[in-house]
Nucleic acid binder design. Structure first.
Lengths: 148, 148
DNA sequence: TATTGTTATACTCTATAACTATA
DNA sequence: TATAGTTATAGAGTATAACAATA
C-alpha cells in the first residue's frame, strides 16, 4: 500500500525542484518571482490596468505600483495612458518585456517536456487523471473552508 | 495523448493549493513560511546551531539570526548555550514551539490523507511511481546543470 | 587562521491608511 | 460617492561586508 504522506512529500519535492528551475531563469534575467509572475499575467491577458493586475496576482494595488516601478526601471514594461479612463494606466510589455515573456513560455514548455516527455503514455494518462481529480477535490474543500 | 505542459500546469496548481493550506496554518499560529520552515527543520533534527539551520534552510547565517529573533520574541524557541562550543548557540523549541511542531506534523499528515486518501490504490501506486521517477530524473538534471 | 554569530546597511515584497485625480 | 493609482509608513525576508569572541 502506498503511504499518502510519502506521496505528498514527493509532490512537495517536485514543486521545490520546479521552483529552483524558475530561480535559475530569474537569476539569468535579473528578475524576481513576483515580477516574473506579473510578466506572465501580462503575457496571458495583454496590456492591463494595475487594478486588474492586483486582482490577478492577489496582492494590493499599492504592491502592484512597486512591482511595476521595478519592471519600468529594468525596461521590461511601460505605463501607457488608458484610452478611455484618464485615471488608469495600461501596463504594457516593451520589446525586452515581450522577449522575456516568450523566453518564459519557451522554458516552461521545455521544462514540461524534460519532466514528462519520457514517461510511458499510459502511465502519464493515469498520473494526470489522479492529479486532475485531486486538484478538483481539494480546490472544492478549500473553497468550502474559506466560505465557512 | 496527454499534453506535458498541461500536466505541469496541474502540478503547479496543486502546489499553490498546498501552499494556501499552509498559509491558513500560518495565519492561525501567527507565523510566516520561513519561520514554519525553521520549526519544521528543528522538529526533524532537534536542537541545532544557527550554522546548521543556515545550511538546512539554504539562507545566510545573518538571515537565521533574524528568523530566530522572531521566533524567540513569539515564544516558540530559545537560544541555549552549546555545551562544548562557547561560540555557538543551540536553537531549542520551547513548550509552545514543540506543540506547534506537533500540530504542523498532524496537519501535514491530515492534508496528505485529504488529498490522496480516496484515490484507488492501483492508480495511486502508478501516480507515485511516475512522481518518483520524475523527481529522480529531474534532480539529476538540476545537479548536473549546477555543476556545469 | 578558521568558525559562530552579530552589527551595519540595503533591497524586495508585503500590508494598511490617507490622499489626489478622475468617473 | 466610487474608483485608479500614489505617497507615507511599517514589518518581514533576503543579501554582502565587517567585526567580536572563541576554536
Amino acid at each position: 500500500m502506498t503511504e499518502t504522506t510519502a506521496v505528498l512529500d514527493r509532490v512537495l519535492h517536485l514543486a521545490t525542484l520546479v521552483q529552483s528551475d524558475l530561480a535559475r531563469f530569474e537569476r539569468e534575467q535579473g528578475l524576481t518571482t513576483p515580477r516574473v509572475h506579473l510578466l506572465w499575467v501580462l503575457g496571458e491577458a495583454g496590456p492591463s490596468t494595475q487594478q486588474a493586475l492586483s486582482r490577478a496576482l492577489g496582492v494590493t494595488p499599492r504592491n502592484v505600483t512597486g512591482l511595476v516601478d521595478g519592471l519600468v526601471a529594468s525596461g521590461h514594461v511601460s505605463r501607457e495612458p488608458h484610452p478611455e479612463d484618464r485615471r488608469a494606466t495600461l501596463v504594457t510589455p516593451t520589446g525586452l518585456g515581450s522577449r522575456t515573456i516568450e523566453d518564459l513560455v519557451t522554458s516552461h514548455v521545455d521544462l514540461a517536456h524534460r519532466l514528462f516527455g519520457d514517461v510511458a503514455p499510459a502511465a502519464l494518462a493515469t498520473f494526470d487523471e489522479v492529479l486532475t481529480s485531486t486538484v478538483d477535490r481539494f480546490a472544492g474543500l478549500m473553497a468550502e473552508a474559506d466560505g465557512r
